[in-house]
Amino acid sequence: MTCREFIEFLDRYLGDELSPAERAQFDRHLGVCPDCTNYLATYQETVELEQKALAPDDAVPADVPEDLVRAIMSTIAQK
């Protein structure tokens, strides 16, 4: 297995979509390739950071600005 193949199918490896034989090939490659080992770790960290960045936070205003409500109701009234 080459690094190109490893990276190309990395999502399938992480998603547990490979056959046991294919998975064993990936694991063997990881055992001998520090670049792909680092790539795998940073790829997983990227996904986690992306999830955290895009995940909801609790900074939800309880109320919507009055002018926005008025603008919406005014637009509806005109239609």
Binding site: L14, D16, E17, V47, E48, K52, A55, P56, D58, V60
Partner: peptide, 24 residues
Amino acid sequence: PRSARRFLVGVSFFVPLHPAEAST
């Protein structure tokens, strides 16, 4: 799907209050 769940292992999602429920 299982694959996606595995992919998200270790990632915590904050489930927000629905504003409709949180407001008077």
